[in-house]
Structures are given as C-alpha cells and as structure tokens.
C-alpha cells in the first residue's frame, strides 16, 4: 500500500498526501503487524527461546558460568576433526546432489505439465519409505556379498568384491539418496519460471545451444542452485544415522558426538556447547556462501 502512495510522489511535486490517506496507511500497517503477530509469537516461543536456552546452557558448569566447554572443544583434537569430517561430507553430498539434481530438474521443467506431475511424484517417492528401511536397503545392495557385487562379479568386471560400504562411498550413496529431492524441488521451482523464449532469443542472436545455456539459463537458475545447495548442506551436517550405519571409522559426524553426550554421558551442558559451536560454524559458512552466490535473490529481493 505504501508503495502506491510513494509511486505518486516523484512525478507530481505539488501532491500532498491527504491526512485521511495517512490514517488509512497507519491502519493498514497496524493490521499487517497484527497478522504477523501470530508468526512472530510462534517463532519466539518455538525457535528463539529454545535456541537462547541452548546457547545459555552451553556456558554452564554445575550452574555457574564458564567457558570450559568451548575450551574443551577447541583443545581436544577429536571435536575439530569430527567437525571437519562433518563439513567435508556436507560439501560432498551437496556437490553430488547438484550434479545429479540439476539435469533432472532441467528435464522435469522441460516435459509437458501432465508428465511433470507424475515425475515429481517419482522424485518424492523416497520420502514415503522409512529412513531406516532405505538405509538397510542400501546395505543389502552394497555389501561385500550384496546384489551389486554379485552382478559385478558375474559379469566378470571384478574378481574380488568391491568395498562399497563401511567407507565414505557408503555414506555418500545413502545420504545423496535421501537428500536429492531437497535439491531437485527448489531447482525445479526456479527453472519452471524461466521464460524459454529467452533461450530461443539468444540462439536467434547467434548463440550456440551451450552458450545460450551458460549465459542465459544457468544465471537465471542460480537462485535455485543457491536454495537447493543451502538446504541440502544444512540438512546434511545434522545427519547421523546413515554415517553411523554405512560409514567407516573415519566417517563420524558431529551429531553422533552430540547424541553420545545427551544420552550416554548425560552431559547436556557440553552437548549444547558442541551444538552451539556447530551452529556458529554453519552461520559463518552460510554467510560466506551468501556473499559469493548472492542467495538473497532466492528471497526475491533485487530482481
């Protein structure tokens, strides 16, 4: 509403806003704030308060304020090492999801609408199965005497079983399977809004198909890449069931350490300190990423 009045201003300098109009503006503003109240309250109660409690708890030892938990995280090698593993796995999963998801989303956005519905459902099918069942299914496929190794050996491609599980490969396969829809859906949503005539126009002006893709389509799909990548990355670094069941000794993720502190050691203060540490590192990474890729476009600011 405010924008309509402002639009008027520059063209006609003699125009003075009617006081009735101003009252109306205020009412509008108040009513909009009123609508926000519910969301703000929900966020405050369900998000701001718990996070504040977690951060506050992380500075407590036996009820008194202390930085010792953070000192322990920094001084004991294990925590930084596990954090590094966690971030590495997060990046790897994001990258693979992007490489697999981008062509898939491109294809989805190109087929007729009728087919899109069916194909989107297929993309979502993994969500319908329990997470644990999917992980165990991969174990049956990938283990030493599993289905895939049986094929490889009967085709004579390899004489020894290939170790595809209990190492990084197992973790990546399991996690990419779970995460792929989170990459495909935002990419698809952005791609479907891109006017294909722009590509035709580019080609009409002499661009090769690859040039048209690289210089027109790819930049326009960047918001989707940014949104999908951030989503997948943030979800990945909180994972622990798949790495626990399909990973090797060097694939411990930080959520596993937090869980051990919460359930086994019952040291919640330290658990919250690890969680806060992870939160800070994540915020920094997302901020840097934001700077590079310009994620604000996702939220529809400067178009």
């Amino acid at each position: 509403m405010a924008s309509i009045a402002r639009e008027r201003d520059p063209g006609s300098s003699h125009y003075q806003p009617d006081p009735r109009l101003q009252r109306l503006h205020r009412r509008q503003l108040l009513s909009h704030l009123g609508l926000l109240a519910l969301a703000v309250t929900l966020l405050a109660v369900l998000f701001v308060y718990p996070i504040s409690r977690i951060i506050y708890t992380s500075f407590l030892i036996d009820g008194s304020f202390s930085l010792d938990h953070y000192r322990r995280i920094i001084e004991v090698d294990a925590y930084i090492r596990v954090l590094r593993t966690t971030l590495t796995i997060g990046f790897q999963v994001t990258l693979i999801c992007l490489l697999l998801g981008y062509p898939l989303a491109y294809f989805l956005a190109s087929v007729p609408t009728r087919w899109q519905r069916i194909l989107i459902i297929l993309v979502l099918v993994p969500f319908w199965t329990s997470f644990l069942v999917r992980t165990y299914a991969w174990m049956v496929l990938l283990q030493r005497r599993g289905v895939v190794n049986d094929w490889l050996m009967s085709l004579g491609l390899t004489s020894e079983p290939v170790q595809m599980m209990y190492n990084r490969m197992g973790v990546l396969v399991g996690m990419v399977h779970v995460m792929l829809p989170f990459m495909v859906l935002p990419l698809f949503a952005v791609m479907i809004g891109i006017d294909r005539n722009l590509i035709r126009a580019a080609q009409n002006l002499g661009a090769s198909p690859f040039q048209a893709f690289r210089r027109v389509f790819l930049p326009l799909s960047l918001p989707g890449i940014a949104a999908g990548s951030i989503l997948v990355f943030i979800l990945s670094i909180g994972f622990y069931i798949t790495p626990a069941l399909m990973g090797g000794r060097q694939d411990t993720m930080i959520a596993q350490l937090i869980e051990a502190q919460v359930r086994d050691r019952l040291n919640w203060e330290f658990a919250t300190a690890i969680a806060t540490f992870l939160l800070i590192v994540t915020v920094i990474i997302v901020a840097v990423y934001n700077r590079i890729l310009g994620t604000e476009r996702v939220f529809g600011e400067d178009r």
């Binding site: 004991v76 294990a78 925590y79 090492r81 000794r249 411990t252 051990a260």
Partner: peptide, 11 residues
C-alpha cells in the same frame, strides 16, 4: 577415554 577413542578412530 571417549575423546581419545574418537580421535584414535579418525586419525
């Protein structure tokens, strides 16, 4: 011991 164990596994 848990910290040492974790470290020992990762290295």
């Amino acid at each position: 011991i848990l910290e040492r164990w974790q470290d020992w596994l990762l290295v």
